[in-house]
Amino acid sequence: MSDSTDEVRSYTVRLELVDKPGALLDALDPIASNGGNLLSIFHERGNLTPRGQIPVEVDLEATPERFEGIVEALHEAGINVIQAGAERYSEAITVVLSGHLIKTDLSDTVSRIQEATNATVTDLSLSAPEGTEAESEEPSSARIRLATEQNATQAVIDTIREVAEDKSLRVIEPLGPGGDL
């Protein structure tokens, strides 16, 4: 791994927002205006933190230097940062799974992958032509995007293969690390 400070990395920031209009936008502004590239926002509107606020998880890319500026700007804007950069995800992996995803319990599939590795599922798209009834006999597919630490992609893919084999699912893996070939 390079120690260079101008290398762009991926970070996950957990924030707590007060439940009022515009709060999310106010939280994103310090990220964008300090050179962060927003990758995804997970806004759990239905959940509340113990302090009665709404938890938000933001994935972004920035250089380590800019990332410090972003966290500082969030604090200055009065936004509650619960966790910032503790886990440094720098590789994204996308795989497609096909088969009896629903019948074999997709959420269990995802949890097993996350539990066995240090990867986090950042995006999941399901295509089930015949609906998502648990008893559906028709095969379906899911595209799963995971964030993981650098140099851990092979271990994550190996785990996905194991879990998929267990459930007789077909895995379409990316070509090369990160699938950028």
Partner: peptide, 9 residues
């Protein structure tokens, strides 16, 4: 191979 896998890709 599932057509839905190609669609998602």
């Amino acid at each position: 191979i599932e057509g839905s896998a190609l669609e998602l890709a």
